[in-house]
Simulated scan of single mutants.
Amino acid sequence: MKNFFLTLKAPILKFESDAWSYYVAIPKDIGNQFINGENRRIICTINKSEPIHSALMPKGEIYSVYVKKDFMKKYSIAEGDEVTVQLEKDISEYGMPIPESFQILLDQDTEGSTYFHELTMGKQRTLIHLVGKVKNVDSQLAKGLAIMHHLKESKGELDFKRLNVLIKEYNNRK
């Protein structure tokens, strides 16, 4: 699939659910242009903000792109505001950026990398997010090492309780 951009105007809407707060509605005919089989991953830029790596989520006759409260606060966006939305198909390997420190671990640890790549794409993104949500490279490295240790120890079966214990142990080794 060739990558392209599409820009549209849309309001910020509020979900009627507590699970997610806000979203931008994308008409089905526009959203369908970005879907390739099961892959609905996109990069969404709102009012020239930092990019949001997300997915087009089916919602009745539209697709929704989730927008977090902290993102809205950071960019002074409120419910009902009409925003300029730029969509781009996310053609990256994982559907989100991977921290360099974690990529290096994957490149160097063949066994851990094998277990990681046997996980579903969603679980891979969850682990990448765990590493990437901290900005300190030493903390990223500690989390990445704990993840690789856990994957090898559990032979690729994720146990988030055990993983969290390992992450705390690795963070305390500093």
Score class of each variant (00 low, 15 high):
74 K>S: 05
107 D>F: 11
41 R>K: 14
68 K>V: 09
110 T>N: 12
101 S>K: 07
92 S>F: 05
58 P>N: 11
103 Q>H: 12
73 K>S: 10
40 R>M: 06
61 E>G: 13
92 S>N: 02
96 M>L: 15
64 S>K: 10
52 I>K: 00
67 V>C: 05
46 I>A: 02
74 K>L: 09
65 V>N: 03
88 E>V: 04
113 S>W: 04
90 D>G: 02
49 S>Q: 09
43 I>Y: 00
74 K>Y: 10
42 I>E: 00
59 K>W: 12
76 S>K: 15
113 S>A: 12
107 D>T: 12
54 S>D: 09
73 K>L: 11
58 P>L: 10
107 D>K: 14
55 A>S: 14
67 V>Y: 06
105 L>N: 04
100 E>K: 13
63 Y>D: 04
80 G>V: 11
107 D>H: 11
76 S>R: 13
42 I>V: 10
85 V>C: 02
94 Y>H: 11
90 D>P: 04
68 K>Q: 14
78 A>N: 15
39 N>E: 09
48 K>P: 00
65 V>G: 02
112 G>V: 05
54 S>W: 01
76 S>F: 15
60 G>D: 08
60 G>T: 08
59 K>D: 12
52 I>N: 01
71 F>V: 09
95 G>T: 01
98 I>P: 06
110 T>D: 14
102 F>P: 02
64 S>V: 15
55 A>I: 05
45 T>Q: 08
95 G>Y: 01
42 I>N: 00
61 E>V: 10
75 Y>Q: 02
112 G>F: 01
59 K>P: 00
108 Q>D: 15
46 I>Q: 03
89 K>P: 07
48 K>I: 06
52 I>T: 01
44 C>Y: 01
109 D>S: 08
104 I>T: 14
40 R>W: 05
96 M>K: 04
81 D>Q: 06
74 K>W: 07
66 Y>V: 15
55 A>C: 12
50 E>Q: 15
45 T>Y: 00
84 T>Q: 12
59 K>T: 10
103 Q>A: 12
87 L>F: 07
51 P>Y: 08
111 E>N: 08
82 E>W: 12
105 L>R: 07
